[in-house]
Design a protein around this nucleic acid. Structure first.
Length: 560
RNA sequence: UGGGGCGUAGCCAAGCGGUAAGGCUCGGGACUCUGACUCCCGCAUCGGUGGUUCGAAUCCAUCCGCCCCAGCCA
């Protein structure tokens, strides 16, 4: 499998690489890595990092590794390493045979740690977590040296070996780097390198009871893999001096860490912690619930890898905190689906239409294009008969100006069929609701026919009542900013736990013959926008998801 | 109030001393067997203030604003 080309627009990281190429800093080599911790599912924010890392490598003739940063067994699980691989692959990227785990390096990491101790650059500290915090100082006050800071290398080495041997309880001792307790950068105040932690690791089992911290494991892992450009997010900027310290002290390969701003999306919760909460509290069906901003959720919602990659290219890469408008993501999927998605007609809120001058019992087969944007997708036939359903919203008894759909005495075209004229309105005696519309059709106006040229203002979608299939349609409101409450991806994250964003419309009617459409197919319901089949959740029952807001000037006008 | 970052249109984002790319959104128009799509057109003097310069978004000074850091998480 070839990784797709992701063309990143001019960005500061590429500029750095260009500069490195000139100076020969990494011997002209480019090697990146995508290093997720397997403690949750990947989300759209990770997609940005994936496209960046694989994209930068590909564009510069380099390679990108997949590495699991699995140094904290208490949070990690194989379920996540599996899903991560699946998602990266689905996005279209290929790490070849370069899939690694930080845990692969535990023995090496341990050896290096002993080396640091022997060099007098690290020491075993007997302070507990509470005490370490107290000794660390604050943002404005320097810290104080640990009373164990000056113990001999020999003593630290002995203690460190015994830590590894399991002689001490969890949390009683740590291995710390000996740097500077007065550093204005808190990260440099003798950071912990190893902690004692009795937790079964998803790969190494109980082989270890001490685990390296990110700040130590990451630079060393990068060095081992000879990563040239270690791209991470902004919050690690303060850690860069420590990153450099590690590789310099150990005198190993020196990758350079480069930080960029993580992705934020309007109306979207991007914190793994909150997403996990939704899953654990069962407020969503799982990490891949279509309402989730996870890669797997987007996949089920009908997003394509192409659309997500395109999105990542368009948003760019920089160091300023940004909040990208969801419209950008929606634009990308609309653009991709517009040429790929097979259309189908579905009436969400049916209104009965009887074509009085059309003979009862006759069923006509009409031809409908599967995708007007893409003739290669062919066509299908649709049954037309005397009784039909149209959208309730497409009829108004007393239409205001500029409404050019069906109304008493007015004509509209039924897409791929005939022009009909409303002759009579039938209402419920009690409620006064319109229950049926009686029309006549113009036999000369059949679509595709020689005499079909007559123009009318509106065109409507429809289904034949007798043949239409009832389907359950689910509209996930996540991407629809119509002011409805209960969006699980609330702007402030406050409404994040409200599960009411799932709207189920059971009365929808769909044209026949399409209910068994394969997983992953997409539909565009004319005027309603795009919908995507989510058959994985309910085999046999198409479940649709509106992934684009109602792009209807009339609907907008009504709201204001 | 210690340290590290960042501030270009409603939202992203190029630009790196020579007189503001592009995309999204929005507004206007054309087209249309749905008002969608498509296609045209329109939309900023670069956080403020001083300075250097023939010339500054780009250099200097200063002020203001926002983000990150006090896990034995990553």
């Amino acid at each position: 499998m070839d990784s797709p080309t992701v063309t990143l627009p001019s960005n500061f990281i590429q500029n750095i690489i260009n500069e490195d190429a000139k100076t020969g800093r990494h011997g002209g080599r480019v090697q990146t890595r995508f290093p997720p911790e397997p403690n949750g599912y990947l989300h759209i924010g990770h997609a940005k990092s994936i496209c960046l890392n694989f994209g930068i490598a590909a564009e510069n003739g380099g390679l990108c590794n997949l590495r699991f940063d699995d140094t904290n067994p208490s949070k990690e699980d194989v379920e996540y390493v599996d899903s991560i691989q699946e998602d990266v692959k689905w996005l279209g990227f290929d790490w070849g045979d370069r899939m690694f785990y930080a845990s692969d390096y535990f023995p090496q990491l341990y050896e290096y740690a002993e080396k640091l101790i022997q060099m007098g650059k690290a020491y075993v500290c007997d302070l507990n977590a509470q005490q370490i915090r107290e000794y660390r100082g604050t943002l404005t006050e320097p810290g104080r040296n640990s009373p164990f800071r000056e113990r001999t290398a020999a003593e630290s080495l002995d203690l460190f070996r015994r830590m590894r041997a399991g002689e001490f309880p969890d949390g009683t001792r740590t291995l710390r780097a000996k740097i500077d307790m007065a550093s204005p950068n808190i990260t440099m105040r003798d950071p912990v390198l190893y902690r004692i932690l009795r937790a079964t690791h998803h790969r190494t089992g109980d082989a270890w009871c001490i685990y390296p911290m990110y700040d130590y494991a990451h630079p060393v892992s990068d060095a081992i893999e000879r990563i040239t450009h270690s791209i991470c997010t902004l919050e690690f900027e303060d850690h860069r001096p420590l990153y450099d310290w590690c590789v310099e002290m150990l005198d190993i390969y020196r990758p350079q860490q480069i930080e960029f701003a993580r992705l934020n999306l309007t109306h979207t919760v991007m914190s793994k912690r909150k997403l996990r909460e939704l899953v654990e509290q069962k407020l969503v069906s799982g990490w891949d619930d279509p309402r989730m901003p996870t890669i797997s959720g987007l996949r089920r919602r009908g997003y394509t890898p192409e659309a997500i990659r395109d999105f990542c290219e368009r948003i760019g890469v920089a160091k300023s905190n940004s909040l990208v408008d969801l419209e950008m993501l929606e634009h990308c999927i609309r653009e991709d689906l517009n040429v790929k998605a097979a259309r189908a007609m579905v009436v969400l809120r049916p209104l009965k239409v009887v074509v009085e001058n059309y003979p009862a019992g006759v069923v006509e087969e009409l031809t409908a294009e599967n995708n007007p944007e893409n003739p290669e997708m062919g066509s299908r036939t649709m049954p037309f008969s005397r009784v039909l359903y149209i959208e309730q919203d497409d009829f108004m008894e007393q239409p205001p100006g500029k409404f050019f759909r069906l109304a008493p005495g007015r004509e509209v075209r039924l897409k791929y069929a005939y022009i009909i004229k409303c002759e009579q309105v039938i209402k419920d005696d009690l409620t006064g609701e319109v229950t049926e519309v009686r029309c006549t059709y113009d036999p000369e106006s059949k679509s595709g026919g020689a005499t079909s040229g007559r123009k009318v203002k509106g065109t409507l979608h429809w289904v034949a009542a007798e043949h239409a299939l009832p389907v359950e349609i689910r509209l996930y409101d996540h991407l629809y900013k119509d002011g409805t409450a209960g969006d699980i991806n609330g702007e402030a994250g406050q409404s994040a736990l409200n599960p009411n964003s799932l709207v189920v419309l059971k009365q929808a009617m769909m044209e026949p013959g399409l209910a068994g459409t394969p997983v992953g197919s997409h539909y565009q319901f004319l005027r309603q926008g795009y919908f995507c089949a989510d058959l994985e959740s309910r085999p046999g029952f198409p479940v649709f998801n509106r992934i684009v807001s109602l792009r209807d000037s009339w609907a907008k006008a009504k709201q204001s």
